[in-house]
Design a protein around this nucleic acid. Structure first.
Lengths: 128, 128
DNA sequence: GGTATAATTGACTTTTACGTAAAAGAAAGA
DNA sequence: TCTTTCTTTTACGTAAAAGTCAATTATACC
């Protein structure tokens, strides 16, 4: 287990710019330590970055990603808060299910395009 | 089968603005007919809009959505083109598989959050 | 101790995907 | 005919998510 990661280590690992990581810090998504003015990222920050980029790939906005991250921060103690949290989880789950369905549909269409291509290729080989 | 849809019919059906549909036309994603200056959308346009919005939900940019739409336009005749097309299909499939994996991971984390919530609820009921 | 190398902040710019407002034509109902 | 209700084009505006550039400041290596 390493203690700290530098910002450029992480930009290389994840293929993002330093500007991006600083932007995520400004947005409050990560809170790296400091030694002087230099940022020191811990494993927790690194993990958060992974989750941010995952959300980004799925087309979530920063605001939506923030929601997801706050959900991860663990269940609160109070009853009302707990119910609110579970409602949010249910909402996110619905969004994700919608996206999953969108993916399945798109993949199915790509499959049929692929088949059509193969069919056309076969025709060409026979010599249309 | 209806012949034409007006722009507002479609905005209501899909919950988007007229500006959005005109924007998609400017971008060359749809090509509605005209009667005078008024746009008349056919079933094919309506179907394309569905696919555009599906891509949008998945976080694809307009450029990426355009790529997908051009793939749908059916296999070309020439060999080189066919191979290029199949390569593109394979690329899109990879992107979608990545997104699917992202979704599964996120859903799994939401599941464990949910469990933690339920556990905490049970504790509260017993009276911690 | 000088000189690359890496990191910082701050400000300005850019791109994407529309929103919004203005001005005007066309169709439809009272 | 008057008034709504749609629709159009043109043009400018904007929010999100960084990119880019400049001016500094440390750090590290030789």
């Amino acid at each position: 287990m390493r203690k700290y990661y530098t910002i450029t280590e992480l930009t290389r690992e994840f293929g993002v710019s330093t500007r991006t990581l600083r932007f995520y810090e400004d947005e409050g998504l990560i809170q790296p330590d400091r030694r002087g003015r230099t940022r020191l990222f811990r494993a927790a920050d690194r993990h958060l970055i992974k989750e941010i980029l995952r959300g980004r790939r799925l087309g979530f906005t920063i605001a939506e990603i923030r929601e997801i991250i706050e959900i991860y921060k663990g269940p609160p103690g109070e009853l009302g808060q707990l119910e609110l949290m579970m409602k949010r989880v249910a909402q996110k789950r619905e969004q994700l299910n919608q996206k999953r369905q969108d993916i399945e549909e798109t993949l199915a269409e790509l499959d049929s395009v692929d088949e059509a291509c193969l069919a056309r290729l076969a025709e060409l080989r026979v010599g249309t």
